[in-house]
Design a protein around this nucleic acid. Structure first.
Lengths: 240, 240
DNA sequence: TCGAAAAACTGATAATTATCAATTTATTTC
DNA sequence: GAAATAAATTGATAATTATCAGTTTTTCGA
């Protein structure tokens, strides 16, 4: 079931996959000259908010959460990046420390490109800077979209949106199975609500036949109605 | 009273003032060749979410809110841009429609640079694209900061932050008076709470001697304590 | 495969924030 | 400057969401 027409998924993805795609061979070679590839296990931290950045990360396989932890230890997930996405470039470009943390939601294979190589290529590559400009300006749309949802939507709507967005992240995985496999805590931290509330809303959705779950695996069975609940579907648009 | 040490104001400002500052004369001339300057009255819309962008806007004088309106007509302010700031470039760079609307909070003088000129200069000017990259990557930090505040902070904390941020916007004005002059609705839409709640919290702050207000003008009289309430001050940092 | 630890779930209750309905105060326009 | 209009304020109440305290289920390592 495609989301076309029922949910504006582009407004929820950074689409950083395109940044490094088919760049000139010379840039490609310099960029990958000192690249290292590392395996991260589920739960491993890739970088931490406040740390000095040393390079950028390319997710060859797996799913990563970007999040901030507040002073009480509560976590808010800002974005979930999947296979093919790039992370960690903001801090390099802004010459600041990491604004958020990143850790592996599932086992990942992640390539690391040192800051120096990235910046060197960037300074000589018009195409790379154009791609980054396009990407980050799109991110603005995604993030403001997020803000409006966090302040203006109900918990139920936010959970619906969270599930739709995650389904796409997990669908892009190689495996034929496309169930969402994420902890309830992560889900609640993504929707910005308490875990107990998330559990209750999930149960509600389950009773409505929108999804099935076994253990922590969630499979969406009625994406259309979920999109309607998210209030992004045309169907539920209220006329004022 | 400076905010140094008591509030991380940089995490709340896009700092787009620097983008066009002292660029090479050639770029400068081409950029300003077809520039037009227009006056906007309080309340005037500069651009609307969903519209096709035709250029970028430089705020020569005044204060502008960027916001999204939801299907029930409620508004969430994403950012308040002041004198010297640039707006409207995201949509041009992402080749999408405006992700949010912009309108004048007070009378403004705003210069308009057509899309074609901006893009032409951008394509040949390394410095301009570097500036934009740095700026937009910093915006990521500001926006994620915002998200964490909206989901993790209380209404009271958010109002304190809103007031501190606005004070800086109004302080940069030429006039010697630096009172915040904004409607209660705008204040509540910035803090992401109901107007009635905002009024009550303002009253509370007034009783605590943090501010004085006459009509809609608000003058902060105890920025230090306001910073403490915002929970960004070191003083109130809880040790875990 | 068992048992400990972690995660998920449930019900009851508390806290926070929003909404509604007036009333009062400010602002604007003629 | 007075009337009309809009904005701000207030009190009461409703709705939503969070928290707390357990219990049950799942996961994972020995």
């Amino acid at each position: 079931m495609s989301l076309a027409g029922i949910f504006p998924i582009d407004q929820w993805n950074f689409k950083s996959q395109s940044i490094l795609k088919s760049i000139p061979e010379e840039d490609h070679d310099r960029l990958y000259a000192n690249m290292t590839v590392e395996t991260y296990n589920k739960g491993d931290v890739i970088f931490k908010e406040g740390a000095v950045p040393s390079g950028i990360f390319y997710i060859q396989k797996g799913i990563v959460k970007k999040y901030k932890v507040d002073r009480d230890g509560r976590e808010q997930i800002m974005y979930v990046a999947g296979t093919g996405e790039l992370i960690g470039y903001h801090a390099i470009l802004s010459e600041e420390r990491y604004p958020d943390s990143a850790s592996a939601i599932e086992d990942c294979i992640i390539a690391f490109i040192p800051k120096e190589d990235f910046l060197e290529v960037l300074h000589s590559s018009v195409i790379l800077s154009q791609r980054l400009l396009k990407n980050m300006s799109h991110e603005y749309a995604v993030l403001t979209n997020n803000i409006s949802v966090f302040t203006q939507r109900t918990a139920r709507e936010r959970v619906a949106i969270t599930l739709i967005v995650l389904r796409e992240k997990y669908k892009n995985e190689e495996s034929n199975e496309d169930a969402i496999n994420i902890s309830r805590s992560d889900l609640s931290n993504m929707a910005g609500i308490a875990k107990e509330n998330l559990v209750r809303i999930l149960k509600e959705f389950k009773n409505l036949g929108l999804l099935v779950s076994e253990g922590r695996k969630i499979t969406i069975t009625n994406i259309k109605m979920l999109a309607e609940i998210s209030s992004y579907s045309n169907k539920t648009l209220k006329i004022r």
